[in-house]
Design a protein around this nucleic acid. Structure first.
Lengths: 231, 231
DNA sequence: GCTTACATCTCGAAT
DNA sequence: ATTCGAGGTGTAAGC
């Protein structure tokens, strides 16, 4: 990894064209050829970048460019598409090389899959007398997160999101429409479950007769079998 | 901006929990308090990070941590949520500070807004005899990208995407449903326009009687008034 | 300030 | 390889 702090302009041409005016920025050149252009603010997204697979070529400026104060040109070309990133360097303020080795990678926990598993294990939070039919119930247009039956033995399709937004309601609506054509299942009610449900999504869901359920991840986790807990 | 190359482990706790095992990584500390943890590969997304607004505190390790080889601890806390990023530093290989100043920001061209403008200016690509009613035609649930009339003076609602996917078809469907209740507009046909239309989106659109139109950004740009062109 | 929709989205899993 | 859904999405525009 090479770290360069430089006064530069940047031009990108590919899926769109973009330009960065002259300023001091951090340029990161990774082992795989990728380049990141960062400013001293914003979030984790670089101002501009080139994703691998790509290759960087360093070249001397033309006389015209040199007259404009450009010291050198970096041309980064994507290997498969013809995306190009051109960095015109006016002044280098820092330049260092570091050998980091391969990273062992990130270990995650707590995303939608876990929420689905927890809700399936504690299907009673949907209401008294509910029973689980199965998780990832397959339909022609994709798997429904959870299929259950209520106390009256009627089918209930549950769509689970971390954040409940409008597209989740649309998804559940498509499933319900399809499942309600199946005489073995119909009538199927819908439950839209999420840790947080946006007002627009709630309105759309209730307008379509879909029940909204806000689930508490920590509370569900607390209902785990005591034998699996630490204390 | 502070750049640190260090042997470290990282733990994040917030909307999910995540852990990075011991390895050498680049740590970027920006002026606004945000922290980025990068490996020497992958794309522009850091392995782990903390977005602003947040604050970093450097502290000494506990005796137990010191025995494990930890030199110091960085605790980064989000100001609004209780998200926490903890970096345990075992060895610092590089540490430098740089004053970059505020970045003037990125100038873009070629995104959806531009595509919409171009299509509105060349509404004839929809078919002979088409005329533009207006861009961003407002409805109760949001603006339709383009409202036009065909050769028979019937209303046509156009939804434009750079990449046409299923949620774009859903969006247009909601607009059409609403607009077709308006006797001044009905009947309204739908056109789903994009530089690229995914097969699933095309299937869904055509199933709902929505016409799919693949638009060529460069060709539209080439149809510009000759006076604005270079040659 | 909050909500909505776009993004050079990125990333991973399933097909 | 392609497609599809999720994201600690980020980000800018609209209200």
């Amino acid at each position: 990894m090479r770290l360069v702090i430089a006064q530069c302009t940047v031009d990108y041409a590919g899926r769109l064209t973009a330009h960065l005016p002259l300023a001091e920025r951090l340029l990161i050149l990774k082992q795989d050829g990728s380049v990141l252009v960062h400013s001293d603010g914003g979030s984790y997204k670089p101002l501009n970048w080139m994703s691998p697979p790509c290759r960087m070529e360093e070249s001397e400026p033309t006389p015209t460019q040199a007259d404009a104060g450009i010291e050198r040109i970096w041309t980064v070309r994507h290997t498969k598409t013809d995306d190009t990133l051109e960095v015109s360097i006016y002044r280098i303020l820092h330049d260092s090389e570091h050998d980091l080795g391969v990273d062992p990678g990130l270990e995650k926990d707590g995303v939608e899959a876990h929420l689905q598993k927890l809700l399936a294990e504690h299907i009673e939070v949907l209401g008294p007398g509910y029973s689980l039919v199965r998780r990832e119930y397959m339909t022609a247009i994709g798997p429904v997160d959870i299929l259950a039956r209520d106390a009256q033995n009627a089918s209930v399709a549950v769509e689970i999101k971390r954040r409940g937004e409008i597209d989740g309601v649309e998804q559940l609506t498509r499933y319900l429409e399809l499942m309600n054509r199946d005489p073995l299942l119909a009538p199927v009610r819908g439950v839209f479950a999420a840790q947080e449900i946006k007002p627009q999504a709630r309105t759309l869901a209730e307008d379509r007769g879909i029940e909204c359920l806000v689930v508490d991840y920590d509370a569900l986790r607390g209902m785990d079998d005591p034998s699996t807990r630490l204390f």
